[in-house]
Design a protein around this nucleic acid. Structure first.
Lengths: 219, 219
DNA sequence: TAGATTGTTAATCGATTAACAATC
DNA sequence: TAGATTGTTAATCGATTAACAATC
């Protein structure tokens, strides 16, 4: 068994995928680690090390074929698996997610939307009719989605997750402020917009303070 | 001048803030690094190291006062600065963002929403009237927001960012698929939901493959 | 005071970068 | 072939963990 690839490497993969997709759409066929490193503001060494966790995708003297590298990374990420997902919660975040079909094919395919609000159940959201959360077990038993996107209030997040784990779901994208702890054999990605905002706030403050210092030293 | 705090530490700060806020709301007054470490699934050593980048907030033999530690971290993150932000783009993501006022006070206060779509301009979104993007310079000159939340299509993201930098904005939260490169003296946080999905997809695939291997070895 | 827990130094571990032989 | 660029090993750097003296 190969040794486990580190989280740092995994976290960079989507970014490689993104850049390669852009290169592809601008018609660039081959790229060297050096040129890619300049575009991405990382070292060429890091790119080669990262890729070689999964195999030798390049060719000495030539570099990497953009198209084949992109598809290799897609495979590594599991984007070719046709994973399917249900969305739980048709509030604002849920609706935004459902409408942005551009996410599809970059990780999953949405096959059903659920909510508990009688006002929402039966209404349509893009090409889906919102279903009653009560019937989610039946739906899962029939269609076997692998993932659930959780866009529900933080008060119910743990309950919903546990229930869905019971029904066989093994991967969650969690939008609630509370984080879903990753016990058991379950994959979780937490998306915390508040965290991003706080980081931005920190960076802004840091810049402001550097600015202040610069002015002081000029005086 | 103190040495720069590493990105790893900064990235963990919002999570500390989140946990401390939860502790506070459940009425817990003091906590030791050991107990916090168990709740957060990190080492006590890491917590103490992280906090001591900014100062000695604890007390030997006692631990940390939850309330004062929370407010210290808020200060470090700049949450007490009353930073203000404009939202550019009142599409789905923009609307979701505007409606989730819970983000406010965790990094910024929203003071205006802009769009270019004549159908949207003049309509209201929660407590705001959507303004014409044409008039954003005037608004910035008058109200001096520090941040901009960019929820615009990727085709226009760089143009919008450059324009707003010209008007004095120094911090951006970017929701577009393309990333905003962080040249100049500008703070940027990119939020890429697709990246989160791809990471989730990878984790799921990894779990599936471990599952397969386990079964093989059982045969 | 004795016990607990911090702040901090030292040790370990892992990730990044540099270098270069292999090879297209 | 000569030049370019990979894959990979070795060196460096930084982050995490462990340990413990300081001290509440």
């Amino acid at each position: 068994m190969e040794k486990k690839v580190s989280a740092s490497v995994i976290n960079r993969l989507p970014r490689y995928y993104r850049y390669l997709t852009d290169l592809l759409s601008s018609g660039i066929e081959r790229i060297s680690s050096k040129e890619l490193s300049e575009r991405m503001h990382v070292t060429a060494s890091q790119i080669r090390q990262d890729l070689n966790c999964f195999g030798g995708f390049g060719q000495q003297g030539y570099g990497y074929n953009v198209k084949s590298l992109q598809s290799e990374i897609a495979k590594i990420l599991g984007l070719d698996r046709g994973y399917t997902a249900v969305l739980v919660g048709a509030g604002n975040m849920g609706r935004t997610f459902a409408i942005n079909t551009k996410f599809e094919s970059r990780g999953f395919r949405l096959i059903g939307i659920f909510d508990t609000d009688p006002k929402k159940i039966g209404t349509t959201l893009t090409r889906y009719t919102i279903m009653d959360y009560k019937n989610i077990k039946e739906f899962i038993d029939t269609h076997h989605p692998e993932m659930a996107i959780l866009a529900v209030p933080k008060q119910v997040i743990h309950g919903v997750a546990e229930e869905l784990i019971g029904y066989g779901i093994r991967a969650f994208l969690n939008f609630s402020y509370t984080e879903l702890s990753t016990a058991e054999d379950v994959a979780v990605e937490n998306v915390h917009l508040s965290d991003s905002l706080m980081r931005l706030s920190y960076k802004l403050l840091e810049h402001d303070q550097n600015e202040d210092k610069k002015q002081e030293s000029e005086v």
